[in-house]
């Protein structure tokens, strides 16, 4: 994944969140690049890119070996992490309790989850539908949400995938993350099942062998998987918007269209500002129109 802010001045360290080496979880995809402070050079240099991970060995070496920081994009990712934790709590409401209290009904939980997910969508401009309210979310943040929600992919598989092809590893992570994010909108509320499907999706893309347990997938989730593969064709960040489902008549897109219609008409806050990966607060990349201008000028 492209990100331009590979080096930051030392003065930026005060604004950044430190990386908790002691309590960090190995093999969990990083929500932001991780920088190390080089005191001699007086610079912050990135040691890991977005969605990369530290192994257990890496974390051991890092202890006491320097000061590490998350990149500035973590501030934009944190609301998505918080939402993921809250959604996990909501999903836990359906578990049968030891007391005699009747647990929440699945439609109540689905409604609550959709209301929470609606806070992550923001109004975006659409050339195709200038008169309609279109909502969108960048794939980067959807994947960060899914990484926080789901269980970890086995570490050996992660290492194998990264060694085989780093770009394909990123694509697999992006596709499986977007898949989980959208599956939640369809009312799939079992974290274990979603984690298992995400792992199967990741596994198939990387073409790893040795997936021991068969994870059955419903037809509409298979359609969603194909749709995600068509949408995410590179490891670069892209926009997932509601108008992408407007004219397709497959079952999964009809269902997503219906749910996102409710999100944009009833639940989404029109004042929400879109979280993006551009500029210095993100990954330092240029916006697509700015990039096109640069290419044109070049």
């Amino acid at each position: 994944m492209q990100f331009k802010t590979r080096k930051l001045p030392k003065s930026k360290a005060a604004e950044l969140v430190s990386y908790p080496v002691d309590t960090a979880e190995p093999y969990r995809p990083l929500p932001a690049p991780v920088y190390v402070l080089l005191s001699r050079n007086e610079k912050l240099v990135s040691v890991k890119g977005p969605f990369d991970f530290f192994t257990a060995r890496d974390l051991e070496r890092m202890k006491g070996a320097g000061t590490y920081f998350y990149g500035p994009i973590l501030k934009r990712v944190e609301p998505f992490h918080l939402a993921a934790r809250e959604v996990k709590t909501m999903i836990g409401w359906s578990q049968p309790t030891a007391t005699r209290v009747l647990e929440a009904a699945p439609y109540e939980i689905s409604d609550a989850i959709l209301r929470k997910l609606a806070t992550l969508w923001a109004p975006v401009a659409s050339a195709a539908q200038p008169n309609e309210t279109v909502i969108g979310v960048e794939s980067y943040f959807a994947v960060a949400f899914a990484n926080e929600l789901c269980e970890l992919i086995p570490g050996d598989r992660m290492e194998m995938a990264r060694e085989r092809d780093p770009d394909l590893y990123e694509i697999a992570l992006l596709r499986s993350g977007v898949f989980v994010f959208l599956a939640l909108h369809l009312g799939y509320m079992d974290v274990k099942v979603l984690s298992a499907l995400r792992y199967r999706f990741f596994h198939e893309l990387i073409q790893l062998t040795g997936l021991q347990t068969f994870v059955p997938i419903s037809l509409e989730l298979a359609e969603l998987k194909r749709w995600t593969e068509n949408l995410v064709h590179s490891p670069e960040v892209l926009m997932i918007s509601s108008d992408q489902f407007q004219f397709s008549i497959s079952r999964v897109t009809q269902k997503l269209k219906s749910r996102l219609l409710r999100v944009r008409k009833e639940l989404a806050d029109p004042e929400t500002i879109l979280a993006h990966t551009y500029d210095d607060g993100g990954l330092g990349n240029l916006r697509p129109d700015e990039e096109a201008k640069e290419v044109g000028d070049g």
């Binding site: 009904a105 109540e108 079952r251």
Partner: peptide, 17 residues
């Protein structure tokens, strides 16, 4: 399998339960 359109899909959570 063909693609089939319906009037509307309602998830139960979207109903005024």
């Amino acid at each position: 399998a063909p693609l089939l359109e319906v009037s509307n899909y309602h998830e139960l959570g979207d109903l005024d339960y």
